[in-house]
Design a protein around this nucleic acid. Structure first.
Lengths: 238, 238
DNA sequence: CGCTACCTTGACGCGAATCAAGCGGCGTGG
DNA sequence: CCACGCCGCTTGATTCGCGTCAAGGTAGCG
């Protein structure tokens, strides 16, 4: 049987993001049932999907669009903690641990997102070892990423961290069709918020990379012209 | 029936650390069975329990002692990522995600630790939703802690981070019987490795706290004499 | 009793934050 | 259609926190 992936995301079975999702471990029958326990929304660029300190009421499942997860410091400066794209789930950490959100999710571009009912989700993971196991692996990956970020922030200088940040963006969103340009448009401030620096320093570092012929900058587009040199600059050991 | 907690940790049923462990969700029968699928070891202070890049062969379960989890930077400087104590499990992240260890575990003092067979562990989490769920909650907590650490490193100055570090040690290991002295002895270098600074700067900051009458230093003992002021210094929002 | 590992303090220099000012693009309203 | 204003980008000047280097003290251990 050939699966009809029509892109009708109200029907999980036909969701275009299905193959990239941890929910793909569910069989067709369960996916069809899932569709009856969720609602769909769209979010404009810049809109909050959920907010720090809010209580989760469901699991977010990204059908389309890019999202940043941020925490805001006491002085108002943001830190980008994670990035998400289609097929990703959001809000699983708070849902699993039964806590409030400790960060906010904001749309980086117009998004289409489904919300799976909380109780249905709890029931699903109890009935389905594979589903919970996939989610644990996801959280484990996030933990590893976070701890690598800790290493980076505590031991590396700005130049190395910025190189890592660009490589992280590449790993997360990939390139556009030209095979060199990062497939995501972030403001300089957002790049700084991931890297853990000021906007001005981020700008200076990017323009230094540009002078070093490692990248090319055109507005918010970033083209990586010398990937080996960028990797070398990042000083990654493992 | 009254449980015999004799402290014989070769029998999980009677392990003194049981009540603090995620494994406590198992019933008596399962705990008894667990004892037949594990081995016990002791580790001297400073000894490696597992190493970065090693393959996990089982789940470590701490019966006694304190442990640091560290990652070593390319310049040889360590970063303390997590701390563990009796009742804690170790090595679950790599085991779940099926990867190599991305950090090393080192005994901060003489330890007694059991190793649960890997395949038995996999079988246990498949047969027992509650066990896996407890472990997910544990990893979720670790992720939250790690992301708070990221915030701290990227936005706070040394004074705030050091205050946070002392509060973290208090939250993890608590006080000794006097109700003020941290129940853990770390070298200045280890404190620096958690805080993300140099040994010299850590020493200077601790001695500044001492002058400010926030703490009292006696060798490696740290007595928190003004907890409210320490909390205020840490600038914690949530 | 001496060696080694850890702790402590001082001096210095650099990386990056901060402050300030000018530029450019885009959307809105006259 | 053009002018205005706002927001993001960029660059320069200045400051300063903290890392690094150096030297000396102290405590524990064989």
């Amino acid at each position: 049987m050939c699966l009809m992936v029509t892109g009708d995301h109200t029907q999980c079975l036909y969701c275009s993001a299905r193959v990239h999702s941890v929910l793909n471990v569910l069989d067709n029958e369960k996916l069809a049932d899932l569709s009856t326990h969720k609602s769909c929304s769209t979010y404009k660029k810049g809109q909050y999907i959920f907010s720090e300190n809010g209580m989760p009421y469901g699991l977010f499942c990204v059908n389309k669009g890019k999202i940043k997860l941020i925490a805001t410091g006491f002085d108002g400066k943001d830190q980008i903690l994670r990035l998400a794209k289609e097929g990703d789930i959001l809000g699983y950490r708070a849902l699993i641990s039964g806590e409030r959100y400790h960060c906010s999710a904001i749309a980086l571009e117009d998004c289409s997102i489904c919300i799976i009912d909380k109780n249905y989700f709890y029931q699903s993971i109890q009935d389905n070892f594979q589903l919970l196991f996939e989610i644990v692996k996801k959280i484990s990956g996030d933990l590893k990423t976070a701890e690598e970020h800790i290493m980076s922030l505590s031991q590396k200088n700005l130049r190395e961290r910025m190189a890592e940040a660009l490589l992280f963006l590449k790993a997360t969103y990939g390139f556009t069709t030209d095979g060199q340009t990062l497939n995501v448009m972030l403001s300089r401030e957002e790049i700084a918020d991931y890297t853990g620096t000021s906007t001005e320093s981020a700008i200076r570092q990017l323009s230094e990379f540009s002078h070093d012929k490692i990248i090319e900058l055109t507005g918010k587009k970033i083209k990586i012209t010398d990937l080996p040199k960028l990797i070398k600059t990042a000083n990654i050991n493992d």
